[in-house]
Design a protein around this nucleic acid. Structure first.
Length: 259
DNA sequence: ATGGTCGTGGGACGA
């Protein structure tokens, strides 16, 4: 089973790029972030025509997440638990029924800039709620993963120029510590578990020639429970997608599971 | 320090 996460930065502008990538990647499950669409306007038919089941959790203008799956999806749940007043569409989860059942959670963690400030407070509070959900998932002792745009640069090795990010909400010590606390519950960060070398990124800003200079950061992650990590057979970043026409500023990150 | 570029929706805001 191949599972990918992809922040597409707007489904309307990215429709063709997404379809092209779906054709080549042949992922069984895709977790999308920043669809920037309400559910009614999401172009589900074009994706269903490629054999995917489609579950969305959209919002007007911003945010929005979705799950695409060639396998059946069960027990779909929308919204990160822990704050009934939070109306931002940043979380969706479902059970994928393959040879084994895998609980997949798609997330779009708040950016948090500028920090300090209310947006950063929201980010840290959201990460605390994420940790609570992560702990509950672990307690089930089943294959499960939480994947998406974490807006967290875990280590200096995950940025071309870490010195330029020291004041940024994606790299502040408090952000990285909150991310580590989630990992330390018992999660495996798929890519870093398999690749130790620096210089692998999943996001390049549209501005200032970031892509041309390979001035990237690695902020899209897949976190696996021990039962999922035991099934992992591969992991990769589809960097070449960033060089295409009308690209997202993120590229897909994926794993393969023996499931 | 500033401005640099996108997407959505059709203005301002988020990233």
């Amino acid at each position: 089973m191949k599972i990918a996460t992809f922040n597409i930065n707007g489904i309307k502008a990215r429709a063709q790029a997404l379809l092209d990538w779906l054709d080549e990647a042949e992922a069984d499950v895709v977790l999308l972030q920043e669809i920037k669409s309400v559910d009614e306007n999401f172009p589900r038919e074009m994706i269903e025509d490629k054999g995917y089941n489609v579950e969305t959790h959209g919002q007007k203008g911003f945010n929005g997440v979705a799950i695409l799956s060639k396998l059946p999806l069960e027990d779909v749940s929308r919204g990160l638990p822990g704050d009934d007043d939070d109306e931002q569409a940043r979380w969706i989860e479902a059970t994928v029924v393959g040879d084994r059942a895998v609980r997949v959670c798609g997330l779009y963690l708040p950016n948090g800039n500028p920090a300090p400030g209310p947006k950063y407070d929201y980010k840290l509070a959201w990460m605390e709620r994420l940790k609570a959900r992560a702990a509950d998932l672990l307690a089930a002792e089943e294959p499960a993963l939480m994947a998406g745009d974490y807006n967290v640069i875990p280590q200096p090795e995950d940025a071309k120029h870490p010195d330029r990010w020291t004041e940024d909400a994606l790299f502040l010590p408090e952000t990285r510590a909150a991310f580590r606390r989630i990992l330390n519950l018992g999660y495996t960060e798929a890519f870093r578990a398999r690749v130790q070398s620096p210089g692998h990124y999943s996001f390049w800003d549209y501005q200032a020639g970031a892509w041309q200079n390979d001035d990237g950061i690695r902020i899209d992650h897949l976190l696996l429970t021990p039962q999922a990590a035991d099934l992992m057979t591969g992991c990769g970043i589809d960097k070449h997608v960033r060089d295409r026409e009308k690209p997202s500023d993120h590229v897909p990150v994926w794993i393969t599971l023996e499931a």
